[in-house]
Design a protein around this nucleic acid. Structure first.
Lengths: 146, 146
DNA sequence: AAGGAATCTTACGTAAACGTAAGATAGCAC
DNA sequence: GTGCTATCTTACGTTTACGTAAGATTCCTT
């Protein structure tokens, strides 16, 4: 929670900060993986915030670590996409019901991710166990040669 | 180590047993990811053993869980490829030095895989921790609305 | 206001990892 | 030997996730 600058960034900065390229950012917007401000008129430069950078980083991570296709990812974070649009709504209202609703959606979204992450980790654990067992078995055979 | 049939399989059976397709098996052979018996003459059917099925399964797993390209995978299991060719040699000789050499190669190969698996698991752990923290934070905010 | 760098849109190109189709052959059953 | 099915080789097609190029525009600086 250190100084999160609210300075607006341009696509080049965002791509550098996330280790991607402008093309990738635009592509993600094109397929609906990134919001893409509705109020940007044709030809104008895109404008981003630190929250967008975080979002892209999250996407990259889920893509790489879970091996999800961008389409599956879209579905997975779809709730968050809607939520991103609702963030303004959240900040512009004091209605506790609205707040609760939005926060609850976030919870579901996170629960989905957690499940995938844990499944994946379980499979990796299993693979590791098998590799360790293999190694042990080879060590044993090596010892028997002595 | 239960009854591992030494019956020879054909490409269709191998693909079914590994959840792939004949095309995939041929493709893996084409790019050198699978050995491809040197003694098969043009046009004859490919013949596989249970060991080949295990090999394919291992490849699929590494591909999916570690997100490796087939080229990286080729490099990673390259030692094993050579080893597969040396298995006969292993079984056809009683020379302990040869045995030791081959087993040692296997150890290196397994060590490489283990390192990748553990790195990956570490990243997943990190991601999980962050997700859990996020969730906790949201729960807290929800509680404060009550 | 001017000029240059970054960004815009549009559209075609590309690498990886197979899919698919066609015509020929192999292998097993009978 | 005949027939049928699975496999073979060859080669072009397809999808995903961007790369790249071109010409126009925007934005910031001076």
């Amino acid at each position: 929670m250190s100084a999160v600058s609210d300075r607006t960034l341009r696509i080049g900065e965002v791509s550098e900060l996330t280790g991607t390229t402008p093309r990738t950012i635009r592509y993600y917007e094109e397929i609906g993986l990134l919001p893409g401000a509705a109020d940007r008129t044709q030809g104008k430069h895109r404008s981003y915030t630190q929250a967008d950078v975080d979002r892209v980083r999250e996407i990259i991570r889920l893509r790489d670590l879970l091996g999800l296709s961008l389409e599956r990812l879209s579905q997975l974070v779809e709730a968050e996409t809607a939520r991103a649009e609702l963030r303004r709504e959240y900040h512009e209202t004091d209605d506790p019901d609205t707040h609760r609703r939005i926060l609850s959606q976030s919870l579901g979204h996170i629960a989905n991710q957690l499940q995938l992450v844990r499944e994946r980790r379980g499979e990796l654990d299993q693979l590791e166990r098998e590799l360790v067992e293999k190694r042990r078995s080879i060590h044993k055979r090596l010892a028997e040669l002595a």
